[in-house]
Design a protein around this nucleic acid. Structure first.
Lengths: 154, 154
DNA sequence: GTCATTTAGGTGTAGATACACCCATTCGTG
DNA sequence: CACGAATGGGTGTATCTACACCTAAATGAC
């Protein structure tokens, strides 16, 4: 058999990266379908939720990017749609003229509340399909991978 | 405490979708960094490998999309860069005038062979960081999520 | 054989992702 | 305080992702 066929077979079967991207597409579709009526995508809800986590002082772009395990420049672009929708606002930091802080608007707060039951439906759908124990194990293991990402930033 | 803060905390801590997307970004970075010298990204290598899997008869767009757990229209766009690079060619199916078949070029074969050792370095790096047992469990669990995606297509 | 239905696939649009590169501000050291 | 280094952040470019919508060809019922 040709070398490239052997190589292809090995990669297709064993690649952790390819697998997690495929699984990510499956999960994203489940969640996006549920929260669709809010006008949000799961990725946007994630950002909103992270902003909420930092509270009234707001989060700097860097803070948010680290919390979301997301490239700083990706966050810049991802803020655009939810800023245009009025769910967050971006202001200059009073302490550091370089920094920008992201703040949750009242509409953003309401949107999170509105999204919660829909998110829960997605979460429940996923659990029902694969079992609570499975999902819990996966969640923990993904935490390990994410921690690896944080470690690599040093 | 405000409702939206409670909701945000719950979602941030428990959302499987958000987690898998974060973990996906971490893994993608590890693999992309390693195979970078081939001029490929992991996502492109995945497509190449899937094309190779279908052999000399080629794969239709639909076949490939299903194998890659990828939206059909996403595959259309993802083929562009590797087609432009001459790694695959797309031809009309002789059996069905609607269908298009994707074929691996000689350059594509060579690229897969060249990528294999780099991919193995990434795979090894991941295993070394989190343990072979961890990675194996994760791989199996991701397979479960992917299977869920296939089931949802019916 | 005709025509409605199904199937295969592309395009418009919009967002998600990140690298290379850039600018501005702050900090540390002399 | 002057100035080089470090820090915070945006833009250009390219790719990845997928929904809504479209076209064309094959299929099936009559």
């Amino acid at each position: 058999m040709d070398n490239h066929v052997r190589a292809a077979r090995k990669i297709a079967q064993e690649c952790a990266c390819s697998r997690i991207r495929q699984a990510s597409r499956v999960l994203t579709k489940i969640y996006d379908t549920q929260i669709r009526v809010t006008g949000l995508q799961e990725s946007q809800l994630s950002v909103l939720v992270a902003v909420a986590h930092f509270g009234d002082n707001g989060a700097t772009m860097g803070d948010l990017a680290r919390a979301l395990v997301m490239d700083r420049t990706t966050l810049t672009r991802n803020l655009k749609p939810i800023e245009k929708a009025g769910l967050v606002r971006v202001a200059r930091s009073p302490h550091d003229a370089r920094a920008r802080v992201v703040l949750l608007s009242r509409a953003g707060e309401r949107t999170i509340e509105a999204a919660l039951p829909l998110w829960e439906k997605a979460q429940k759908e996923f659990r029902a399909a694969l079992g609570a124990q499975f999902v819990e194990r996966l969640r923990a293991d993904l935490g390990g991978v994410i921690a690896l990402g944080h470690k690599r930033e040093d």
